[in-house]
Design a protein around this nucleic acid. Sequence first.
RNA 1: CGGAGCGUGGCGCAGCCUGGUAGCGCACCUGGUUUGGGACCAGGGGGUCGGAGGUUCGAAUCCUCUCGCUCCGACCA
Length: 451
Amino acid sequence: MYLSKYFLPVLKEAPREAEIVSHQLMLRAGMIKQQSAGIYSWLPLGLKMLRKVEQVIREEQNRAGAVEVLMPTIQSADLWRESGRYDDYGKEMLRIQDRHERDMLFGPTNEEMITDIFRSYVRSYKDLPLNLYHIQWKFRDEVRPRFGVMRGREFFMKDAYSFDLDEPSSRAAYYRMFVSYLRTFDRLGVTAVPMRADTGPIGGDLSHEFLILADTGESEVFCHGDTMKLPVPDRNIDYSDDAAIEGIFKDWTSNYARTDEMHDENLWAEVAEGDRMNARGIEVGHIFHFGTKYSEPMGAKVTGPDGKDHDVYMGSYGIGPSRVVAALIEAGHDENGIIWPDSIAPFDVGLINLRVGDEAVDSACVDLYNQLTNAGFDVLYDDTDGRAGGKFALADLIGLPWQLIIGPRGLKNGEIEVKHRATGERENLSFEATMNKLTAWQNDVNERFGG
RNA sequence: CGGAGCGUGGCGCAGCCUGGUAGCGCACCUGGUUUGGGACCAGGGGGUCGGAGGUUCGAAUCCUCUCGCUCCGACCA
């Protein structure tokens, strides 16, 4: 992408209303624009990140055996009356009427609708297990939206729903999603820790939250240090091996790990002092196992091997990609701007032309741009007629992993200045050495984080 | 929903207390000089001061109402 043809409206100063760093940086980097309290437009750079996060989540859901659907944002109130939640959900649900004065709502979640889909088609236990998910905008009319897209009213969420014949198989489905979340956050290049969670108004008896660790996180995290050292299963994981999956779940949940909400000082005291880890985190995922809470009132049954009808056991599994984007920034930034993880930056490389209009520099940049693009790199080429300082500031602000700086001075020696955003390391390399370095990096990233 | 605060060119702010017809920095446009870490000179465009009503000869400024936004608390991916 040529910067001159892109739409990247950066701000030198952060708008006053932005208090936390991710919100400030998202506004400054031209990723989002607020339209109303808790409601945002996603501009090209922000959308690019949102899509990348979404895609990682999708790949890991698919790998774990979930099947993607897409349900509408607008739902009929009737479904919610069946489950009893139309009255229970309260003011957080945005209620609207259509022209025929039918009661509708902007979906805050989709348990009812997915249960309706399920009961419309599935009759036999032979069709189970089934896990359907979608990635769709949700609306919750929060009393107090804040922190940019971190707590918006409209937000993007991946929500998966599992259906099983009985409780043991339903728990197995829960464990699969648990493990899939471990892999998802690992691929997103962040440390996310599962914590035992309150099941809340949604009900159920088994629930975990996943928190991305960041100093600026809202939740206080108490966990056993060993949890941080556990290996995340690699891409060859076999999700059909229930015992192995349950083993991973047990490894990750045997140690104490809770947020301030569920914290128990007595249990915490039992953790050896040297093992206690106290940190802050941002909740980005939440999974629930809730049995027949919705299937029973809504009549979602299958015929079992015994020839009788059984209410299906369900669980739901959410990750908010829009919040994840903000959390990545909270977890990775410095005074100059964003530092994206290697695995999930909006572009791989920023190519900076220090002397636009100089024939030699221009053609060197274009050649390198084409070469990199052909090699599979996503490159943002700063071909604008700006000054060096401004270009460097922009590159640091949007936080691409690599900056390739080409100007007349270095070009005389056939060299490019190669800067790594995360470490600040810079070196002068030949064009060939630059390609080799980036290719090695790309291979390493694919190896560690690739699907 | 309780408490606090803020709305003045695109962004950041001053002016308000003590009414006199809107200003600064950045950004933007034109010309020129520059060009390796947010240049300089000259010229220029853009705001009915969130909205409505009131007081007054006169309102960004005082009064009333209203809308929007932010922060703290209770709740949430």
